[in-house]
């Protein structure tokens, strides 16, 4: 059970970490200055969540730290979802990815605040407040882009089409999900799907965006340690200093 709990914390921590990394890449590139500040706030919240979950994972593991898990772990040991690994293209893509994750986080954390694991419960209580705001914000943008101009609608539609296949993973149960559910630590991923779909579909439909066909595109996922080709590059960049100077502390 302990191993599964660690695995679950890594999934949550790594997913927030990598999404925050993608947001960091976008720094100083937003369409308007106000948006640069706003999206950075989201990035900072996610980084905080990542640190909390990784700290807990490190405690459970023993003999390691959140920093070591971030900067000295190998790719195959990461448990982040494929969705957050996707590279930034345009604002519509960044925003749509954020929205899909915000909906997922909102539904997930609203369940995790009644977890039987005290630490997960504590982290989630803080996270849910942040996530509610993230969702409110990205939901506004979905409307602006969906109903804004023909171009913005098209770009958002393309982004949703491209991202849709990655949402499959969010609701697949693996052995970790089953163990977490059995011990009343977390819900089954598959149990989140209908709420998520309802939330996403109603927002997208309102914004005149069509829901893509469901595709199962992979049988092996980030949560199992099988990643997209993108993750290697993210880690190469993120881990570069600690790996280059193994004896140094920062």
């Amino acid at each position: 059970m302990k191993n599964e709990l660690i695995d679950y914390c890594l999934r949550l921590g790594d997913s927030s970490l990598i999404l925050s990394h993608r947001i960091a890449e976008y720094c100083s590139k937003a369409p308007i200055l106000e948006e640069d500040l706003a999206i950075t706030n989201v990035g900072l919240d996610l980084l905080g969540q990542a640190e909390n979950f990784l700290t807990y994972a490190a405690e459970l593991k023993g003999d390691t730290t959140a920093d070591l898990l971030t900067f000295k772990r190998r790719e195959g040991d990461f448990r982040c979802l494929h969705l957050v690994q996707t590279p930034n293209t345009d604002f519509a893509f960044i925003l749509a990815r954020q929205f899909l994750m915000d909906c997922y986080h909102q539904i997930l954390f609203s369940k995790l605040i009644s977890s039987e694991d005290e630490t997960i419960l504590g982290i989630s209580k803080k996270a849910i407040k942040e996530v509610n705001y993230h969702l409110d914000r990205s939901n506004d943008w979905i409307k602006r882009l969906g109903l804004g101009t023909t171009e913005s609608n098209e770009r958002l539609q393309n982004a949703v089409n491209d991202l849709w296949m990655y949402t499959d993973e969010l609701f697949i149960d693996n052995s970790t999900d089953i163990a977490m559910n059995k011990n009343k630590i977390a819900p089954l991923s598959s149990n989140l799907k209908s709420d998520w779909l309802e939330m996403v579909e109603s927002a997208l439909k309102f914004s005149e965006i069509k829901i893509p066909q469901e595709i199962r595109y992979s049988l092996r996922y980030g949560k199992d340690g099988f990643h997209t080709e993108y993750l290697g590059f993210i880690l190469a960049e993120m881990q570069h200093l600690p790996l280059l100077y193994p004896d140094a502390t920062w």
């Binding site: 308007i32 106000e34 948006e35 500040l37 706003a38 706030n41 602006r144």
Partner: peptide, 17 residues
């Protein structure tokens, strides 16, 4: 002050800024 296109964005930007 700040710039925004609508009041929802203005309120959220005010919060973030």
């Amino acid at each position: 002050s700040l710039h925004a296109y609508d009041k929802e964005m203005a309120m959220k930007s005010a919060r973030d800024l």
